[in-house]
């Protein structure tokens, strides 16, 4: 139906009348997501250098069967599916990778490949609808990460602030902001209610929904910040555990 008779060359792949360098919009996303993906895969399979002193890499928390009693492979593989699944099905990341990798679309008003597009109506993308279950899992994992961040301040039963403890604390705060600003959480807390004033517990749920809505406006920002922070936290612990860096005691 669209534009079949208009002789304008913007219908083909990446065809557009836009003047600006639209590809600069997807380039950072493509690079960052790609770099994180490669690094995370490498680290997940490495199965070593994930803990030092009180520090535990977020890629490996909660740590299950580190002694390989029943699981012969890297312990990260047991749990990493949950936080990664949370991010993969996240409403923000979906936008980022649909644009950057699938080119659906590459940018607004820029042509894409003509093919049988199904959006999120067919397998596997229909599974995106299960985002809230990954949220539940992510909240549980977040509990462990908070525990990790707190015990990271104690070395041999004594309070100690190291660079690593700060990094882990910042990381868990960023991860929490990202998790709390989630679209699914926003829906569950209050978004699904039509009339707050006629629902029991409507008022606190409205307050909660309002608060999440404000955070949700920056979901993209938190998504990137927490992605970078979780990667760097792991990297820091890996470097310390491998003896490349020495964790400096601040207090």
């Amino acid at each position: 139906m669209a534009g079949e008779s208009v002789t304008v060359s913007q219908g083909h792949f990446v065809g557009t009348l836009r003047r600006d360098a639209w590809w600069t919009e997807i380039l950072p996303a493509a690079l960052l997501l790609g770099a994180f993906g490669i690094y995370a895969t490498f680290r997940a399979f490495e199965g070593a250098y994930y803990t030092w002193g009180p520090y535990l890499s977020p890629f490996y928390s909660p740590l299950i069967d580190p002694q390989h009693h029943f699981w012969p492979w890297s312990p990260a593989l047991l749990i990493l599916a949950f936080p990664l699944g949370f991010r993969t099905t996240c409403y923000y990341y979906r936008k980022a990778y649909y644009r950057a990798y699938f080119m659906d679309p590459p940018a607004c008003a820029v042509g894409e490949r003509k093919r049988n597009y199904c959006g999120e109506t067919k397998f596997p993308f229909i599974l995106q609808n299960l985002h809230r279950y990954f949220l539940y899992a992510a909240i549980i994992v977040l509990g462990f990460l908070w525990y990790d961040a707190i015990i990271a301040f104690f070395l041999d039963g004594h309070f100690r602030v190291g660079v690593g403890s700060i990094i882990m604390l910042v990381n868990v705060v960023l991860l929490s902001t990202y998790t709390v600003s989630c679209h699914s959480l926003r829906h569950l807390v209050g978004g699904k209610i039509d009339c707050f004033s006629c629902t029991s517990m409507g008022s606190p749920r409205h307050t909660g929904w309002r608060a999440i809505s404000i955070l949700n406006e920056r979901h993209m920002l938190y998504a990137w910040c927490s992605l970078i922070s979780v990667g760097l936290t792991d990297l820091y612990i890996r470097l310390v555990a491998a003896g490349v860096l020495r964790d400096i005691t601040i207090l």
Binding site: Y98, R99, P105, G119, E120, F125
Partner: peptide, 15 residues
């Protein structure tokens, strides 16, 4: 209305 076809790439919001 086919809401599943939307892959939330946000161009609508941008314009």
């Amino acid at each position: 209305l086919g809401i599943g076809f939307c892959n939330i790439t946000k161009c609508c919001t941008e314009v």
